[in-house]
Design a protein around this nucleic acid. Structure first.
Lengths: 238, 238
DNA sequence: TCAAAAGTGTTCAGGATACACCCATGG
DNA sequence: CCATGGGTGTATCCTGAACACTTTTGA
């Protein structure tokens, strides 16, 4: 996979008569330093030259949209086992200057600190704070906005916040994540009581290291327990 | 538009080299006689000959997926102003026997009693109870299941139940709709109090006619009031 | 006057919210 | 011993759930 996998550059899978192509675009959200970011690549195609764009690629003949998205994630991070959710399609006839390019948007979640971008991808990619993004190539800003909306919705309905954090995290980190992504303030005691009552965290009996104050206890997400509770009809709601 | 608009029959927009085509499929939900139904068309293509299928069509060069879905709705009902929500894409490489056909699934809601199927569509189409459907052509049963799931979710989060009822309806009708679609029982008094507190119904000061018991009061949905409340952050939740 | 469905209030429990102080650690 | 962030409990309010009888109409 080369840089030409940026759909901006790869032309071959576009049928020249119908000018029809089918792609996926991934909004890869990362979280680091109490900040929500998106993985971007610089666009080198007029009229969007120099603007940032999302990671996307054609869907090949032998894969479905989901697999294509996973392939992009693996290309960027070397990892396939990443949270991924389909959001919606974007298919305005004039959305792409090369012709009819219909795309399915996904968003995915990674903790930036644990995510080494692969060598091949590294030099082209950039994490950009969501707040700082005012425009993107193509209709990618619109795609980002839709995915961000969906992320916020899902974050309140399903326990996916953990996907953005390191395996071990403190309750404070988790709370800040919710506050940053949702753009709201949460009460510390109520937040903790809520999570305690959900019973989906495992106390690791460990503490933060090398902090100049009382170190926080560390937890991990109890995926197994959640799956069980979930099928019993647990209502996750923050 | 002819019957060949059923994607099963129309071949031309499939590129013969790439075998790539792009379609929409509509799960058109209708409600009648306290029963949730889906509009279907008989499939006349092997290996699905005789099975029911969803209403679908190619996306043309000058429309987006949404417009294609609306076009299908207009073809079937003569009406364009119908509730429509995109659900997800279906893109398994082998999902269609003719080649690579990627589809975007939508569901829409109509009150069957108010929906005259257009003459051209009428003879081919059939309303089938959701409960009775065990198999469909292609992966349409999977599409239906996904759309039904999404309908149930949205029905609890947004005031869309009205889309399935006549303009004027009784509270009993509305409650039964929720009970039928969600497959649950609701308490009459709690349900009515809930609706009262939401303040999104207009009392028409009218009553049912020609029923052999005390006639129920009729209401209509106050779309304007809801829009206002919604932007003020009303949490609709049933 | 009967059958059939419409319509209405109260109580209780559990979850959501608001709120302030002590604790542990490193420097 | 001080600065910094970690950690905890209680009182109140509100919403959701459970529950039974009276009213109106047509036949």
């Amino acid at each position: 996979m080369t840089r030409s996998d940026n759909i901006v550059l790869a032309l071959s899978p576009i049928d020249e008569d119908l000018k029809l192509a089918f792609t996926v675009d991934c909004v890869i959200f990362g979280y680091d330093n109490d900040d929500l970011k998106v993985l971007t690549i610089e666009c080198n195609m007029d009229p969007f030259m120099g603007m940032i764009s999302l990671l996307g690629d054609f869907i090949t003949q032998d894969e479905d949209a989901d697999s294509a998205a996973k392939r992009i994630l693996k290309y960027c991070t070397g990892n396939e086992d990443i949270f991924l959710e389909e959001v919606k399609s974007f298919s305005k006839p004039d959305r792409h200057p090369f012709g009819r390019v219909i795309t399915i948007a996904f968003y995915s979640l990674v903790p930036i600190s644990l995510t080494k971008l692969t060598d091949s991808a590294d030099k082209h990619l950039k994490w950009v704070s969501v707040d700082e993004i005012t425009e993107m190539a193509f209709d990618h800003k619109e795609i980002l906005d839709n995915c961000l909306y969906q992320l916020r919705k899902s974050l309140r309905e399903k326990p996916i916040g953990f996907e953005l954090l390191p395996k071990k995290f403190s309750l404070k980190q988790l709370q800040t994540l919710y506050e940053v992504v949702l753009g709201i303030e949460l009460d510390k005691r109520n937040f903790r009581r809520k999570l305690r009552s959900l019973n989906i965290l495992i106390d690791l009996e460990e503490r933060q290291q090398e902090v100049s104050h009382r170190p926080a206890k560390l937890y991990k997400f109890d995926e197994h327990s959640f799956e069980k509770k979930s099928s019993d009809g647990l209502k996750f709601e923050i």
